[in-house]
């Protein structure tokens, strides 16, 4: 974005970050020292396990039959990738991700505009909007579950008194999407609001003077200017949605083929105690997420947030 920003003061290369004295070496040492603990923890808890899980995924390793542990190459991958349950879960996850992120983008943009522009009760709106973000997902999921449970729920009574919606596949998926959307719209809205704040008021005034209608100002000025913020928000939410677990666990427990890939992995691991298969799924999910991130960054040109670290 820097090319659109007019520098208000002349750039002064003789000042700035470099002004730290006390010698470069000491600074480097201090920097490394300060980062070391965080880096070590992150690497120990993610780096090593990733490698370990790749190794596990190449083993036959069922905790119920630990004696039969054996290196079997890519057999686990063949097993998983030829299994219809995996593909069903993959399809469900993709579906939930695409639909909920799409709805979130629209509602999130709406909420962002409301929070940014409302003339009355701005503090209240912003406060209240944070509640879905902050609330424990499981709590919210229980609220939705009871709301849609036959007899118990007010929503069930209102919309479908005769049906047990959570036990039917399509309605159950819709409710999962609803729960996801409700919880994450505020987060999306906050990210988008930060983007909105980057649109200078003068720019909108100029657009009005140039004869743009409200809708044109939105599509021709606001959206393009905040495109980086939108892409970052989409990236974050897509990756997050792909991990969907809590809501499904509470709402349907994966019944009626509503399980996500995370549910499949959990079931194989904790319920089935099959570490080999569980790890294989772990690796596959990791790869899927990596592909999504790659697509966002390469195809849409999403800039990694904070990626320009030291500058600015």
């Amino acid at each position: 974005m820097s090319h659109t920003v007019q520098q208000t003061r002349p750039a002064r290369p003789d000042k700035g970050k470099r002004a730290v004295s006390e010698g470069k070496k000491a600074e480097r040492k201090l920097g490394l020292l300060l980062c070391a603990p965080a880096a070590l923890v992150m690497l120990a808890v993610t780096g090593y396990p990733i490698v370990y899980s790749i190794w596990l995924s190449l083993q036959r390793y069922d905790l119920r039959f630990p004696d039969q542990q054996k290196f079997i190459g890519i057999d686990n991958y063949v097993t998983v990738l030829t299994n219809s349950y995996w593909w069903t879960a993959f399809g469900v996850t993709t579906l939930i991700t695409v639909i909920s992120v799409a709805i979130e983008l629209v509602l999130g943009m709406g909420l962002a505009l409301v929070m940014h522009r409302t003339l009355v009760m701005r503090g209240l709106v912003r406060t209240v909007a944070l509640i879905p973000y902050g609330i424990v997902t499981v709590v919210a999921a229980f609220s939705w579950r009871y709301a849609w449970t036959q007899d118990t729920g007010y929503l069930a009574r209102l919309f479908a008194p005769e049906a047990a919606l959570l036990t039917e596949r399509v309605p159950a998926l819709a409710i999962i999407v609803l729960a996801e959307v409700w919880k994450t719209v505020p987060f999306m809205a906050l990210l988008l609001m930060a983007g909105l704040a980057l649109v200078p008021d003068d720019l909108l005034k100029a657009a009005s003077m140039d004869g743009a209608s409200a809708w044109q100002r939105f599509t021709k000025v606001i959206i393009p200017v905040m495109k980086p913020a939108i892409l970052v928000a989409l990236l974050f939410r897509t990756l997050d949605a792909f991990r969907v677990f809590d809501n499904i666990f509470v709402l349907t427990n994966g019944a009626q083929q509503t399980g996500s890939v995370s549910m499949q992995t959990y079931n194989n691991l904790i319920k089935g105690l099959n570490l080999g298969i569980g790890s294989t799924m772990s690796v596959l999910i990791f790869l899927a997420v990596a592909v999504i991130a790659f697509l966002f960054i390469k195809v849409f040109g999403t800039s990694a947030p904070g990626g320009d670290g030291g500058k600015r």
Binding site: P10, A11, R12, P13, D14, K15, R18, A19, S21, E22, G23
Partner: peptide, 18 residues
């Protein structure tokens, strides 16, 4: 003008830059 080294010179007198 900008970048002529005047501020750096001042910072060196101050001890803020080596």
């Amino acid at each position: 003008p900008s970048g002529c080294g005047k501020s750096t010179t001042l910072n060196m007198i101050a001890g803020l830059e080596d």
